[in-house]
Amino acid sequence: MKTKSNIERLLEAGKFVVTSECGPPRGADAEVIRKKGALLKGVVDAVNVTDNQTSIVRMSSLSACLILKEMGIDPIWQVVCRDRNRIAIQSDILGAAALGINNILCLSGDHQSFGDNPKAKNVYDIDSTQLIGAVKQLRDDGKFLGGDDVKEGRPNLFIGAAENPFGDPFEIRAMRLGKKVRAGCEFIQTQGIYNLEKFAKWMEMVRDLGLHEKCAILAGVIPLKSAGMAKYMKSSVPGMDIPDELIDRLKGVPKEKQGEEGIKICVEQIQRVKEIPGVRGVHVMAIEWEEKVAEIVKAAGLSPRPE
């Protein structure tokens, strides 16, 4: 084991891991994070903290991680390449490790045109694959990107990334994961899965390349609150593949029952992805619906979590 990460430990022990996420507030109130944290503590093995997701300004991911850490949760610090150059990113990596953060999720980040500051300049000094390599280099080789030695403590982070099995072109999606794995990625959380058939096909490609043995694949699921949310995500969220029969199934129940049905669907999806060879965990993204995570995890038969 390279790090003190809870999920690295559980994965090494062969356990099926469960992660979830927590979006920081659009303000400075730490209580918001603590409340969300309280809903997830003990329910999942680690909690992602998003980094200005959809390019909307929020409390810093690292600060929110620390708040969760102080509550005894193992946070997964998300870092996007959109807002910071290699100087800031390396510095933050050292800072995060110093604060006891054990996991990093390397992302390119949504383009700023989607957010509340579309007039911003983006950075993209490095991309997500290169960021993975940078973390690995700092941790394993003790070398900064500029070539100097890391003195006084290497950052011991468990390295993760995201991959969208539904993005185009589909045929290279597994190959692209291969590049991330070669760069040093140790776990992957996928984009929310609704099209199980396509995901299974992607996993087949992943297994053909042997990537599931070098990198833990955590399948992403997002519970749908309503048919409206499903339709919105299908049409407006890039790279989201929601089959029509799922939307029809939600439409088929009265509005006030759609949330319940959405949770039922999510639980079924977890049970099905769990059976796919190579899937070593699930990542439950209950967007502003953290109170339902415990229910979903329990219904999926994944409670209680291993010590």
Partner: peptide, 16 residues
């Protein structure tokens, strides 16, 4: 590329 990424495509590529 809108993000100038060197190891793309990002997850936002759909239908080309």
């Amino acid at each position: 590329c809108a993000k100038s990424i060197f190891n793309g495509p990002c997850g936002g590529s759909a239908n080309g």
